[in-house]
């Protein structure tokens, strides 16, 4: 089945089985390996992508469901070689360890800050609660999102 969607700012068309897992389309057919797969059951969040700006689990979507959607994977977050403020904050705040949860975690944070630009730490924890991290204990990830919120907020008020 031919499926067209807007991926990371580009019109994209793939010819894949309609019921193929979207994460496999991204990772294997389009070679966008930044999106990870950790459990295949919607429990870990490693496969998180943005669909029309909102977090979704690409391991629980059929390829057909991407039709016509605006999809952002981690590869599509930086603009003109400049990383997103959330990515920058993850780097600066020590929020990255093994890095396997990181792409999903970053996208979850981007969506969270879109909806709530000034979250409390508890709200950040809530917003990231679908993304498991086994390395960090989440503390520095929450720090990073808090820092990113501040940075984005200052950017907007300017």
């Amino acid at each position: 089945m031919k499926i067209s969607f807007y991926l990371n700012g580009k019109d994209t068309c793939v010819d894949v089985p309609a019921d193929r897992k979207l994460v496999s389309v991204l990772r294997e057919d389009l070679e966008l390996t930044g999106t990870k797969e950790g459990c295949g059951a919607g429990e870990c969040g490693a496969c998180t992508i943005l669909v029309d700006g909102h977090v979704r689990l690409s391991c629980l979507m059929t390829a057909a469901q991407a039709q016509g959607r605006r999809i952002t994977t981690i590869e599509g977050l930086a603009e003109n070689g400049k990383v997103h403020p959330v990515q920058e904050a993850f780097i600066e705040n020590g929020a990255v360890q093994c890095g396997f949860c990181t792409p999903g975690m970053v996208l979850a944070a981007v969506d969270l800050l879109d909806r709530n630009p000034d979250p409390t730490r508890e709200q950040i924890r809530e917003g990231l609660s679908g993304n498991l991290c086994r390395c960090s204990g989440y503390v520095k990830i929450v720090d990073a999102v808090e820092a990113a919120a501040g940075k984005i907020g200052r950017g907007k008020s300017r």
Partner: peptide, 9 residues
């Protein structure tokens, strides 16, 4: 319910 992505879906 679940988590933010699960609630989105």
């Amino acid at each position: 319910i679940g988590s933010p992505p699960v609630r989105n879906m």
